[in-house]
Design a protein around this nucleic acid. Structure first.
Length: 121
RNA sequence: GCAGUCGUCCAGGCGAUCGCUGGCAGAGGGACGUGAGUCCGCUGCUGGAGGAAAGUCCGAACUCCGCAGGGCAGUGCGCCGGGUAACGCCCGGGCGGGGCAACCCGACGGAAAGUGGCACAGAAAAGAUACCGCCCUGAGCGAGGCGUCGGUGGCGCGCAAGCGCCGCCGACGCCGAGUCGAAGGGUAAGGGUGAAAAGGUGCGGUAAGAGCGCACCGCGCGGCCGGCAACGGGCGUGGCAGGCAAAACCCCGCACGGAGCAAGACCAAAUAGGGAGGCGCUCGAGGACGGCCCGUCCGAAGCCUCCGGGUAGGUUGCUCGAGGCCGUCAGCAAUGCCGGUCCCAGAGGAAUGAUCGCCCGUUCGUGGGCCCGCAAGGGCGCGCGGACCGACAGAAUUCGGCUUACCGGAUGGCUGCCGCA
């Protein structure tokens, strides 16, 4: 399994975000709020929403990068849109803790992973 | 060496693995297309955040809209000269203030145009006034003194009437010291208040005082000299205007059309609506089944084609520029001319990263070592382990500035002090 993350694997339109908020399943984890919503796209997609309230631009960017990194190494099966809203600490805690939090949230939302993905290199 | 001051530069480093994104080249894997080609993916090489990318406070470029000319309002700016595309920026100079100095700071036109303000304190906060004080005049009060008259006591002289001397009491008159003083006047030196009180210091002068007079300083005015100028110097002259605040309104001078890359340009679904043309309204347009014809069914006043506007969306604007670096020359400098050389992010729910290892730095804990000290303790370097520590902070059309944030490091000039030669 390639660990890429290409543009078509991203949620990028505001209506798509709103659709996920409206119709998706929601879970509050320790460091993120996650929405999971079935979609017709041939890939699993990720969207990150870090508002100004979360922090200045440096912090928001870092949170988005970490979220993408999580998704890249642990992709769900196709046909689901994931939206992550980072919470306080998302940008600063150890990455391994973040992985644990992420996988836990996926289990709670019953989002199956693509099998055979190893740990982070 | 220590302390300070002004610049310039840097913004943890190296490696591995996995990614994102721009460009160039290649092979031809996939999709669409008759095709030219377009899109997606692949391989290789290569580029990919800042000094503030920030705040969005000024100035411009660029774009669209507006625009006869003039004025008002509004906003901004405000010592002088220079630089610049421009500026509220920069450089140099002047003036004022701070510092031993290097150097730093200053919205720095006008308060003798008008309106208004100046808390508290203070007599008074602005056409000066006069609380205390000082001085002059001074009604009066008045210790005390003198005189006249009356009363009275004592003593002396005298035979006595009486006279003289000393004293006491009262009335009247005169003189009158004064830390006394009604009232009037002079004064603004001194006191006290305040951020600020009507030039300052000294001498003379005076009843006390005062630019009342004089000298020096300050100020105003007029020549002169230096300077492009701001301004400075000096001479003469006037005894001398009147506080602060213009970041209160205001006055004077100068400048200014508006909106902004979500500007603007191009392409352009679906749906609704507009225009033109064609066909059709039972002699059947069109649709479904079907490779096609026949045929069967549906089917009603619409249907089809084209045109223009235009939303979602896409493309463009979009990065070669008042560009960086090096050098010559001009200039005190800001900067400019010329020559050479380089190409240095272009994303778009928004790339420039994630993880791990080593090193560096910081810091904490701990172990033992050396030095100083009586001791408490301090200093130096070493090992091990940890932090999840590594300043401020993330391009969004592009430049020139300003302002604000910031762990630190490197380097150069200058100043003061100490030491050595």
């Amino acid at each position: 399994m390639r660990r890429t993350l290409q543009p078509h694997e991203r949620v990028r339109r505001r209506p798509e975000f709103l659709h996920a908020y409206e119709h998706g399943r929601k879970h509050h984890a320790r460091f993120m709020t996650m929405f999971a919503c079935e979609s017709a796209t041939p890939a699993a997609r990720l969207g990150v929403s870090a508002t100004r309230k979360f922090g200045p631009a440096v912090v928001r960017n870092k949170a988005k990068r970490r979220a993408r990194e999580l998704f890249r190494h642990h992709k769900p099966m196709p046909g689901v849109d994931l939206v992550i809203i980072p919470r306080r600490g998302f940008d600063s805690i150890p990455f391994t803790d973040l992985v644990t939090d992420f996988l836990g949230a996926l289990r709670r939302l019953r989002v199956p992973l693509v099998p055979g993905q190893g740990a982070t290199p």
